[in-house]
Each structure stands twice: as C-alpha cells, then as structure tokens.
C-alpha cells in the first residue's frame, strides 16, 4: 500500500505492507534510528513518538494507520537548529544514562508540558508511567521534565 507521512515536517512516501509497524517504517524506511524498540507488548514505551502531537507507542500502530498524519520523533525536537528546552534539561539534570528510553521520555515530556505548563512531580510521574527506564530510577527524568517546564514557562512569559 502506498502511504505518505509527514515526519518532522518532511513528507515521506513509500509502498509498505499493511503489517509494517510504524516504528519499523520510521527506523528502516525513513531511516530515523532515534525511535527504539524495547518490547513486543506495548509495555516499555521506548518506541513512543508523537502522532499529530499525541504520544503513541509506534510499535502498536501500523504505518498504514499513520497515512496522511504528522509524526514527530526525537530527531524533530530541535527548533531552528537549537536544542529544545527538554533536550537541554535532560543533559543538565542528568536525566539519562544508557540513552535508550530517552527519546521517548523527552517526547512524552514535551507533550505533557504542551498540555500542562506547570506540572507537579506527581503529574510528571503519572504522565511517564507508560514508559520504562532501567537506569535512572526516574528521579532525574522527573527533575529534567520539571526543569524544562520551568524554562518553557519563562520563555513564554518573556
């Protein structure tokens, strides 16, 4: 089936089998390797991308379902060539170790801040509870999202 997706602002057209998962389309067809695969059961969330701004586990959506829709991956987080607030915050707050869950965590954090510019620690923990991390104990991921929310608020008010 012939499909066209907008990925990080650019259009990508390809002929795919209906069973091809969105995550494989992004990784193999588009060639963006920042979206990872960690489980088979929609549990770990490392494949999370934004579909029309909403976090979705891309291992649990067929590429054909995303036909005509707009996808944001970690590679699309930079704005005008600059790291986004959340990317900076993950580095600043030591919010990552092995880096495997990081793209997903940053995307979920981005969507959360978009919806709730001033999230509490509990709200952040709840929002990322569909995404696993094995390295950090989540402490610094939560801190990073909190910090990114703060800089985003400051940026918006200045």
């Amino acid at each position: 089936m012939n499909i066209t997706l907008t990925v990080n602002g650019g259009e990508h057209t390809a002929d795919v089998e209906p069973r091809r998962l969105l995550v494989d389309f992004l990784r193999s067809t588009v060639g963006l390797k920042g979206t990872h695969i960690g489980c088979d059961t929609t549990s770990c969330g490392v494949c999370t991308v934004l579909v029309d701004g909403t976090p979705v586990k891309s291992c649990t959506m067929f590429a054909v379902q995303a036909n005509g829709r707009s996808i944001t991956t970690v590679e699309g987080l930079k704005q005008n060539g600059d790291l986004s607030a959340i990317q900076k915050a993950f580095k600043e707050e030591h919010g990552l170790q092995c880096g495997f869950c990081t793209p997903a965590m940053m995307l979920v954090g981005t969507a959360l801040i978009e919806e709730n510019p001033d999230p509490s620690e509990d709200q952040i923990r709840w929002a990322i509870s569909g995404n696993l991390c094995r390295c950090t104990g989540y402490i610094n991921i939560v801190k990073a999202i909190m910090a990114a929310a703060e800089t985003t608020r400051e940026g918006a008010s200045s």
């Binding site: 929609t42 969330g45 999370t48 909403t54 976090p55 979705v56 586990k57 649990t60 959506m61 979920v108 709840w126 929002a127 990322i128 509870s129 569909g130 995404n131």
Partner: peptide, 12 residues
C-alpha cells in the same frame, strides 16, 4: 478511566 492501561496506551 485513569486506571485503564497506561497513559500512552490510553491515547489510542
């Protein structure tokens, strides 16, 4: 509703 699945799965 908040107890169903996890927050990302709940989006779909």
């Amino acid at each position: 509703a908040p107890w169903v699945a996890d927050p990302i799965v709940r989006n779909l």
